[in-house]
């Protein structure tokens, strides 16, 4: 009987002296994920509104990626003196996966500030806004990932069953996306200079990571590559698709970086969740 009353009449307690931060952060995440329909609907709206009135809509992304893959493929295959049919599948997977990662990172910076209007008016779990950002990027990625298959067919190379290992790789990217959107969303809401810094860092990371060039070119310095978080996360998707699988060391390193991202993001969320409404 008492339980029924409790369920019907929720109690909201906020006490500055006993903030119970971890409990509230966990409840926030649990409620956000349970109500996944809301961020899913908002993410769909974001995509629809962004391409409102455009004929191709989000397929403009597919088209521009396709043009870039073909253009860079012809240029770099002659620069690196590799046969186009060998290099193009590698480049297609690299560029598409890299674009996905860099778009996620750029969007993560505004995951909370872009929902400012809602945050200040409605008491919603913050994880809803983070999920919205992740789902929005998943929808965008879904428009260019199929290009990979097209390039494979055109070049006449089809990977074997080990290509299915790219799926756990994509799942790993999704987990990272959530952690990064949570962490960068909060940091960028508080310090507005972080977003441009992240932008330049990503540009540098593009050239430092083996996206356009193959890792073999590094020769003996390849041993340092597992320390590059962008490379290892990208490789969990690219490896199974073009190299017949990723090395166990890559998976281990990617797993550790993911764990680190989650722990740091959660720690920040626990500590500063209550301040987000004042920051945005």
């Amino acid at each position: 009987m008492l339980d029924q009353i409790e369920a019907a009449a929720p109690l909201y307690v906020a006490d500055a002296a006993a903030p119970r931060r971890r409990e509230k952060a966990l409840a926030d995440l649990a409620t956000g994920f349970r109500r996944w329909r809301l961020p899913a609907a908002l993410a769909r709206l974001d995509i629809r509104n962004r391409y409102r009135g455009s004929v191709l809509g989000p397929f403009w992304l597919t088209l521009s990626t396709a043009v870039m893959v073909v253009g860079l493929g012809i240029l770099y295959s002659s620069l690196f003196k590799l046969p186009l049919a060998d290099y193009l599948p590698f480049l297609a997977v690299s560029l598409i996966v890299w674009n996905m990662i860099s778009q996620i990172v750029a969007d993560a910076c505004t995951s909370l500030t872009s929902s400012e209007g809602i945050i200040r008016q409605l008491a919603l779990p913050y994880s809803v806004h983070i999920l919205r950002c992740v789902m929005r990027n998943a929808l965008i990625a879904a428009h260019s990932l199929p290009l990979i298959l097209l390039v494979f067919l055109a070049c006449g190379v089809l990977p074997g069953w080990e290509a299915l290992l790219a799926l756990p790789g994509l799942a790993l990217v999704a987990v990272n996306a959530f952690a990064i959107a949570l962490f960068l969303g909060m940091v960028c809401a508080r310090f507005r200079d972080i977003a441009p810094i992240v932008g330049s860092a990503m540009q540098l990371a593009f050239f430092l990571s083996p996206v356009l060039w193959k890792p073999e070119l590094l020769a003996e310095r390849q041993v340092w590559l597992p320390f590059n978080p962008f490379y290892v996360v990208m490789e969990t998707v690219r490896g199974p698709l073009v190299e017949g699988g990723a090395a166990p060391l890559i998976w281990l390193s990617a797993g550790l970086y993911t764990l680190l991202a989650c722990v740091v993001a959660f720690a920040f969320f626990v500590r500063f969740r209550g301040r987000i409404a004042f920051w945005v």
Binding site: V13, A14, D15, A16, A17, P19, I119, R120, Q121, L122, A123, G274, R275, A277, F278
Partner: peptide
């Protein structure tokens, strides 16, 4: 929407 800075 806002968590109190002080009090309960």
């Amino acid at each position: 929407v806002y968590e109190p800075v002080g009090g309960r």
